[in-house]
Amino acid sequence: MWQFLARSLEAAAIFTFAGLGELVDQRGGILNVGIEGVMLFGATLGFIAAQNSNSYLVGLVAALLIGLLLGLLHGFFSITLGVDQVVSGMGIWIAGLGLTTYIGNPYTGPLGMERIQTIGGLSPFFYLGVVLVVALWFLLFKTSLGLKIRSVGENPSVAEVSGISVTAIRYGCVAFGGMMAGFAGAVYSLYYNPVWNYNFLMGWGFIALALVFFSMWNPIILQAGALLFGILWQLSLNPQLVLPGLLSRYVWRMVPFAITLLVLILISTRWFRTRWGAAKPEALGRPYLKE
């Protein structure tokens, strides 16, 4: 049972990293629907780098770098070129699916490295996730930088007039978002399930995206949602731990996705909507072009 819980918390950490990146993106007004693609890139290149250098550090740094690069690419498309953010995000996701399938294929199989040391039975990534959640909550709501990020996502024209560089803040947000998604992917492929296989993520990025909508753009709620879905995901992989013999394993694999859909419906109810509407970054998804 403890092992089940530990695995759940580690799954939660992956949702947390990817979700936090997307949350900061969206707080700055940029929607990146392609985090699954960034995660695939981070996971694949991190895996290859770690295996070739026999160093986890190298793998994680590689994942951060490719994440940064893809975040900036999304920024270039959506901030500088003013391309529709959904088109650009979809592009990054499909590019991730397509290119990592080809790049990673020769590395199909287990990572074959000694496991990362745990602290109190949990990977260091879980603790790192919690620390980041608190730090980002503080940054977003208690510092002037956080205020700038939020105002850029809320009303970029007003922010610009008050002397904030919308472009710089937004680039900062997408850079951070990309790095976090790349990192989340590497945590998956280097620790959570260190085996490379084609399109192995199977929806983690899209669930993380849904979690951000659910979180009302608050890191603390995001963490709670990530914990919930970490447990749920783990349960869908090992249903026999809780309900042996009930439903087949394939039906269980559908459960996290079905519950995500239910949650998305739930947050559309009027009670939730009035609170949600107040939290939603007003300029989310709209390109800002200076005239």
């Binding site: 070129l81 592009g91 590019a95 699916l97 397509g98 290119l99 399938t101 080809y102 790049i103 294929n105």
Partner: peptide, 25 residues
């Protein structure tokens, strides 16, 4: 060659097309 050549083409076409969206405008 390695598996997934058609996947690589899919990815490259998509990302190029996104860049070109700019020129439609």
């Amino acid at each position: 060659m390695g598996f997934g050549l058609d996947y690589a083409l899919l990815g490259l076409l998509m990302i190029t097309l996104v860049g070109f969206q700019f020129f439609y405008r």
